[in-house]
Design a protein around this nucleic acid. Sequence first.
RNA 1: GCCGUGUUGGUCAACCGGUUAAGACGCCUCCCUUUCACGGAGGAAUAACGGGUUCGAUUCCCGUACAUGGUACCA
Length: 509
Amino acid sequence: MSKVRVRFAPSPTGGLHLGGVRTVLFNYLFAKKHGGSFIVRVEDTDQSRFVAGAEEYIFDCLAWCGIIADESVIHGGAFAPYRQSERKELYKKYADKLVAEGHAYFAFDTPEEIEAMREKRKAEGGGSLQYDAGVRMKMNNSLRLLPEETKALIDAGTPYVIRIKVAENESVSFTDMIRGELHFENENVDDKVLMKADGMPTYHLAVVVDDFLMQITHAFRGEEWLPSAPVHIMLWKHLFGLENMPQWAHLPLILKPDGNGKLSKRDGDRLGFPVYAMDWKGPKTEEITKGFKELGFLPEAFLNMLAMLGWNPGTEQEIFSIDELIEAFDINRVNKAGAKFDFEKAKWFNHQWIQKLPVSSYVSKVKVLLAENNIEIGDDVFFEKILNLVKERCTLLSDFVEQAAYFFKAPTTWDADTVKPKWNDAKHDFFVAFIDKIKQQNDFSSEQIEITFKELATEKNIKPGELQLPMRIMLVGAKFGPAVFEIAAAIGKDETIERINKALEVFKA
RNA sequence: GCCGUGUUGGUCAACCGGUUAAGACGCCUCCCUUUCACGGAGGAAUAACGGGUUCGAUUCCCGUACAUGGUACCA
């Protein structure tokens, strides 16, 4: 086998959704696994739907995921240009070749005429509504027209498209890496438009030409392309030869969690989770759709979660780094059926990765989050220590804001309902005495604080347990966080005393 | 309508003719912890339906149902 070359070919018409990222991922894993190259080209043949900024956005998302293309618009490479709009002439050449060899033809039909044809076929009760062998000799195209009539129309500047001429009484068979042997009867394939009236190719022509020119060996794409695969294969046969065709892999869809159907942006809005890798601002509405990145996902977790949607290693391992994924990935283990997206499981992956990674790898991201919430953090060493103390309570990076805030800022509200009903003078006296004790104490380690605390409680004849919760409320303000003595040790003696005193006043009132 | 693809617990899923049908998420119970978590131990919960083939089908074949994708001068 020649060197593996795979490609991801996004259409810059919107955000990069889960299905898109997973397609990239599988492409990337496969390429890296086989020491091949991963190239990103841009499918912008429909200029009317092209969204400004979408192309940059896609590369930003890939960069966040740590996926770097070997060749692309921004990374260069031997097969530039990578934008289909810049390769226009190339496609035309191949389309003309197809016409010259009788595999394609000019069609002058207006949209109205085609619509009329469909209505007629429907009325006649025929199953198919396609522009195919059954009707093409009744349409306004170069197959039915005399050569001089065709020429006259073209010379007169009549808009036309080029359509593939699907051979009659034949069939197409091919092997899909995921689905195995597939078979299509030509009578079910219609004469797809190859070149549009504006001179741009359709995806059908462009994908084949580009895959050939860019020497793609394995083509991964969503399952929604399966029905048009026969057209692509015919094109390969006519243009470049089946022996040069890449191997196909049609990936299963990512479905919405409730009900059925392809996951869409709307589902995310409705169910409250992101479907885009990063924040995406709609071109018209200016409305921002939340991304996994901004919600507080680690790219490692995001990729890990996506990889396990539709693929599994056949072992019980679920947590994979990108390198481990490359090592373990096997296209034969990709499932055929679509997978429903489960946000709870996605969060679980993120929680796992927050624990697994050293805090140093995400400390700067958390720092930004705290800064956004006006929380001053001290030096980095102390900050990382705090992160280690609270990380097991964090599912999203944004959880660190609440979990770490009280280490840097004294509480301003206290969960009084927890303390007040059981509050009494004896407890008040305990804390006054406790302050005196720790004032004299040089060793302010959590262990020593705990010893002092418990000894004093025993002395005062109060169960330590009954005092720990009030102490927590004093330091944190609420019922959460690591061991109280750890917190006290972390914030230091002075701050601890200050917080206890402050709370004592509040509880008294 | 026509064509394609798919169907193991609520979700992700293993098992590719013989299993008490793994594991994970979520849910429930208990333990740990006088906080919240983590962790530990348990639990409930699954092969769409009907025919074949076979000594034996969740596994193979055929129907049906359901779902989903395509049926654009969108990708």
